[in-house]
């Protein structure tokens, strides 16, 4: 869908993007992660042809990115905004027509969306008369009204209350099911595991990690397990087939230990060692969250 190759973007004082390459697969949800100021917005602006890279290329469905692709991209910028004094219906139609829709087509689609999101009564309202959350909803509609193949969302959930954030999330997932490719940037990791098929992590203008979320998490497994047992707290003398990372006493006489395998032992060895000693409630492999990977990676570079 989108192939970003060796993008370099230099600003007066600093380099915003340094040789960044990415592949966004068609029909997937792609997360662009990174701390504030990493260069996410710069990259998004290049994909939207708001700015041009100093070197490197972007390919859209195999074609070099050009003006004709604008109409197939929907963009929700991080800083939201609409014409304050313009009526909302008229404004949405204007924005859709700028994306190449006819007036009739835009009106029809807008009616559908307004009904879907319960905004029918807003048509004649001016933006300044709406609450902030309502404005965000309207802007989301403006982003997807022309049924783009690629939807780019910069920090889509910021500014939404939890109810509306959930609503928008569902809409994003539905659009994705209908075939739209979604690219969104965020620094909030919780949403990533829930939504994204693949991610790229950008830090200080470099891409430091990318791939499928599952693969990344699996590759960051480090033979760590959680074990919960009921009974007297066990004492370990060093002969056990693992190292203790942490121990925690829970309620009802239960204890949880976090352990790391040593000497090429397996989870089976752990159970074998523990079974005669206590009653096991649970054994679970610890897969690092994206958040942990993110922090680890960023700290590693810093």
């Amino acid at each position: 869908m989108l192939s970003i190759r060796n993008i370099v973007k230099q600003y007066a004082g600093h380099r915003a993007l340094n040789d960044v390459s990415l592949e966004v697969e068609s029909g997937k949800i792609f997360g662009l992660l990174g701390p504030n100021g990493a260069g996410k917005t710069s990259l998004i602006r290049i994909i939207n042809q708001i700015t041009a890279p100093d070197s490197g290329e972007v390919y859209f469905n195999g074609e070099k990115l050009n003006q004709s692709h604008i109409e197939r991209i929907g963009y929700l910028p991080e800083e939201r905004g609409l014409y304050k004094k313009m009526e909302i219906g008229e404004q949405m139609i204007y924005l859709a027509r700028l994306k190449g829709l006819t007036r009739d087509d835009a009106t029809k689609k807008l009616k559908f969306w307004f009904e879907k999101l319960g905004m029918e009564t807003w048509w004649k309202k001016k933006i300044e008369e709406l609450s902030k959350g309502m404005q965000q909803k309207a802007q989301f509609v403006a982003t997807v009204l022309h049924e783009p193949d690629l939807i780019i969302l910069d920090e889509p959930f910021s500014g939404f209350d939890p109810v509306n954030a959930e609503l928008i999330k569902d809409e994003i997932l539905e659009l994705n099911r209908k075939g739209a490719t979604i690219l969104f940037s965020t620094h909030r990791m919780e949403s990533v595991e829930e939504l994204c098929d693949s991610i790229a992590l950008i830090h200080k203008s470099h891409k430091i990690l990318d791939g499928r979320v599952k693969h990344i998490r699996n590759s960051y497994k480090n033979e760590t397990y959680l074990v919960e047992y009921t009974g007297e707290p066990l004492a370990f003398d060093g002969s056990q087939p693992f190292d203790i990372i942490s121990e925690l006493a829970g309620e009802d006489n239960s204890n949880t230990i976090k352990l790391k395998l040593n000497n090429s032992n397996t989870a089976n060895d752990v159970l074998q060692y523990l079974l005669p000693k206590t009653r096991i409630n649970m054994l679970q492999e610890v897969i690092p969250s994206m958040n942990e990977i993110f922090i680890e990676k960023v700290n590693l570079i810093a």
Partner: peptide, 16 residues
């Protein structure tokens, strides 16, 4: 200035 401060500018220039 209105377009700039209301931040609609980025939406518009992603289209034109």
């Amino acid at each position: 200035i209105e377009e700039k401060t209301s931040r609609i500018i980025e939406v518009i220039i992603s289209s034109v």
